[in-house]
Design a protein around this nucleic acid. Structure first.
Length: 424
RNA sequence: GGAGCGGUGGCAGAGCGGACGAAUGCACCGGUCUUGAAAACCGGCGGCCCGCAAGGGCCCGAGGGUUCGAAUCCCUCCCGCUCCGCCA
């Protein structure tokens, strides 16, 4: 959510920033007009309230002095004012609600350094690491959806029987690999991040704070009978840990990590990437997250990117880093980087991590504050990144480490394999 | 799920129709004293909104209602605790 005061004081700056995302400024004009109306109504309401309060005090005093007639007159006057106050209060509240409703749907302003662009195709590649297009053996050029059934480690046919399309089931060494990746991601970030196991079903308020609601309700699974939603990422509950709180400034930055299942309806993606493990309704992911001051945020962003990169590099996989251009930036994002791993069997770059800085956009939605030096309160900044998204890394490993007879276990995962060195 | 009790400032805890945004204690910040610290004493100390300011309004779990006036009375909901039931 953008700062309404910023929209009031420098609407042109806000509109110019949104224009970089390809969004016209008409919503900003609407919000500004409604906001002005809201403030006018609230001021009028307050004036009436002042009179009611003064009259009420008089009534009490008059009764004590035994002047019943005068008290009755003041009461009548106050009652009449009370009706006017109620009308004004209702109008002001309605205007305020409408302002918020609009504000919740306006995306964040991009960082000045975020590259301009219209779509995914314009995301610049920042660097490519460990990739040699001619360095792969024929055995590595087999897609994981063929290797999976061949070695009995992926059983999507039965997953579909159990849960329908776009669900997967790993078995034997494949299941171990999935679990090992989660454990690996947690272990290597435990130096700086508190491990959390948050709830996977959350309230609407929780999903609103991160930005999924109200605009992207169709993307999330709803458990309507109990008014709960299945989380699409651990970012959602982690962001709400300190929702509606003022965080002790000395404790910032606060860093959390959580491995959870993530649930996505993938509305609009039906028929895309349907084979194997590339796009599924339920998958495991280890998320790293931070609350920070605005001053701490840039450094933390670099650290999150670095951690995600090293996690992939140490698995022996080739990857590249992309910066997200203004036209492809998610609604809540201020600045964002993607890490894509190379899967030789499918010959694709697979997005396995997205690291983002949200500035104060989510904090304002969730009312998450701290006390900056000069007194008062201010919104914190939030940042998050996938330390590791399991399915696509799983696919890249199975393809990269296939030698014709089995899949070798990457060295850094050996501690999680109960002595096995090969998946077959 | 049933019954009982309860939700007040960072915490504890008073208030139970009018002068209450709210006693008191603790915590916290500044000062005095001290070589330094502790103790003691003095002062300060919630959040939000509007306003250049002066000032005004709102917030006692949430939402409605009664009243000239609600933290205080009534209704609905949410949450917590205790006991019972069920349960991995």
């Amino acid at each position: 959510m953008l700062d309404i005061r910023r929209i009031r004081t420098e609407p042109d700056v806000v509109k110019a920033a949104l224009a970089r995302r390809g969004i016209d400024g008409s919503d900003i004009d609407r919000v500004a007009a409604l906001d002005e109306q809201q403030r006018r109504l609230a001021a009028e309401r307050d004036e009436v309230r002042v009179q009611v309060k003064a009259l009420s005090k008089q009534v009490g005093a008059l009764h004590r002095d035994g002047k019943a007639d005068e008290a009755a007159a003041a009461q009548a006057q106050s009652r009449a004012l009370g009706e006017r106050e109620q009308t004004l209060a209702a109008e002001a509240a309605a205007a305020a609600a409408e302002v918020r409703e609009l504000l919740l749907r306006i995306p964040n302003l991009p960082h000045p350094d975020a590259p301009d662009g219209a779509s995914e195709a314009d995301n610049p590649v920042v660097r490519v690491v460990g990739f040699d297009p001619d360095g792969y053996e024929p055995a590595q050029r087999i897609p994981h959806w063929d290797l999976g059934p061949r070695y009995g480690i992926l059983d999507n046919e039965r997953a579909v029987k159990i849960s329908g399309a776009m669900f997967t089931m790993q078995r034997k060494g494949g299941a171990t690999l999935a679990r090992a990746l989660t454990q690996y991601a947690l272990d290597r970030n435990a130096d700086a991040f508190e491990e959390v196991r948050p709830p996977s079903l959350v309230l609407s308020e929780t999903l609103t704070a991160t930005g999924q609601l109200p605009k992207f309700a169709d993307d999330a699974y709803a458990i309507e009978r109990d008014d709960l939603w299945a989380i699409p990422t651990a970012e959602v509950p982690l962001t709400s840990i300190h929702r509606d709180e003022i965080i002790d400034t000395a404790s910032l930055p606060l860093r959390f990590m959580a491995a959870t299942s993530c649930y996505r309806r993938e509305a609009g993606s039906a028929g895309r990437d349907t084979r194997g493990m590339l796009r599924t309704h339920e998958f495991d992911k280890c998320e790293v997250f931070a609350y920070a001051t605005p001053e701490q945020a840039p450094e933390l962003l670099d650290d999150l990117i670095d951690r995600a990169e090293r996690g992939i590099a140490d698995l022996g996989l080739a990857y590249r880093v992309l910066e997200i251009c203004t036209g492809d930036l998610g609604q809540s994002h201020h600045r964002s980087f993607d890490i894509e791993v190379y899967a030789p069997g499918t010959d694709q770059w697979l997005e396995v991590s997205s690291v983002s800085w949200f500035s104060d956009y989510q904090a304002r939605r969730g009312n998450i504050r701290y006390r900056p030096g000069g007194g008062g309160t201010a919104m914190v900044h939030t940042l998050n990144g996938s330390a590791l998204a399991v399915p696509r890394v799983w696919a890249a490993i199975v393809e990269t480490y296939h030698d014709g007879d089995a899949i070798a276990v990457p060295e850094v995962l050996l501690p999680y394999f109960r002595g096995s060195t090969r998946i077959a």
